[in-house]
Amino acid sequence: LKKVVALYDYMPMNANDLQLRKGDEYFILEESNLPWWRARDKNGQEGYIPSNYVTEAE
């Protein structure tokens, strides 16, 4: 899975979204639905995130 790091905080707009915290790492599960990607956080929560809020992890 592709790993990304959040560049900004993101508060979910609806139940399908995943909250982002700046500096945290996330795994990308699906990239087909631009600009929204399906992601999983370190706690196993899954949801959609804005792809322009993250960058690929080193």
Rank of each mutant, 00 (worst) to 15 (best):
K3I: 13
G23I: 00
E58D: 13
Q45W: 08
Y26K: 00
N43E: 12
V5Q: 06
K42Q: 11
E58C: 11
S32Q: 08
E56H: 10
K42R: 11
S51E: 05
D24C: 12
M11C: 12
E46F: 04
E58Y: 14
E46A: 04
P50Y: 09
A57Y: 13
I28A: 02
E25A: 08
Y26G: 01
K42Y: 07
N33P: 14
W36M: 15
T55D: 06
Q45E: 12
M11D: 11
Y53C: 09
F27D: 07
R38K: 14
D17G: 15
G23M: 03
Q45F: 12
N14L: 07
E46T: 08
W37N: 04
W36R: 10
V4S: 02
G44T: 02
G23R: 02
Q45K: 15
I28F: 02
Q45P: 02
W36V: 09
N16V: 08
I28E: 00
L29Y: 06
D9R: 02
R21F: 13
E25Y: 15
Y53G: 05
N33R: 11
P50V: 04
R40N: 03
E58F: 14
K3N: 05
I28W: 00
T55V: 14
N52V: 09
I49S: 00
E31Y: 12
L20N: 00
Y8G: 05
W36E: 06
A39E: 01
Y10L: 06
Y53F: 12
A39G: 05
A57G: 10
L34R: 12
L34K: 13
N14S: 13
P35G: 15
V5G: 01
N52E: 12
D41H: 03
Y48R: 09
K3H: 06
E46S: 06
G47H: 01
V54I: 07
A57N: 09
R40E: 04
D24K: 05
W36C: 10
Y26Q: 00
N33F: 09
E56G: 11
K2V: 05
L1T: 07
D9L: 02
L34W: 15
A57K: 12
G47L: 01
Y48M: 14
G44M: 05
W37A: 06
K42G: 09
P35Y: 15
Q19W: 09
Y8C: 12
E56R: 09
L29C: 05
R40S: 06
R21K: 14
I49N: 00
Y26W: 00
Q19P: 14
N52D: 13
P35S: 15
M11G: 06
F27W: 15
M11I: 15
R21L: 10
M13I: 14
Y26C: 02
E25C: 12
L18W: 02
Q19K: 09
N43K: 09
L34E: 15
L1I: 11
M13A: 11
L29E: 03
Y26V: 04
S32W: 08
M13H: 11
I49H: 01
P12Y: 02
R21N: 11
L20P: 00
Y53T: 03
G23Y: 05
A39C: 06
E58I: 14
G23N: 05
V54K: 00
E25S: 11
L18E: 00
A6T: 00
F27M: 09
P50Q: 06
K3Q: 06
F27Y: 14
E31P: 07
A6F: 01
P50A: 04
P50R: 07
M13S: 11
T55W: 09
K3G: 03
W36T: 08
S32H: 08
D9I: 02
K22A: 13
K3C: 08
G23W: 04
Y48F: 13
I49T: 00
K22L: 06
E58A: 14
R21C: 10
N33H: 12
E30Y: 10
L20Q: 00
V4Q: 02
K42W: 07
L1G: 08
D17C: 13
I28G: 01
L20Y: 01
L18P: 01
E46P: 02
K3D: 01
Y48E: 05
K42D: 06
A6E: 01
M13Y: 08
D9H: 04
E30N: 08
N16K: 11
K2L: 07
A39I: 06
Y8E: 08
L1R: 06
L18H: 01
R40F: 06
A15C: 11
I49V: 08
G44H: 05
E46M: 06
E31I: 11
S32C: 12
K22W: 04
L20A: 01
P50C: 11
Y8M: 12
W37S: 07
I49K: 00
K22T: 08
L7N: 04
N14M: 09
L20H: 00
Y10Q: 03
E30A: 09
M13K: 09
W37R: 05
E58K: 11
V54F: 05
V54A: 02
L1F: 12
D9P: 04
E31F: 12
G44Y: 04
Y26E: 00
F27E: 10
M13D: 09
Y8R: 13
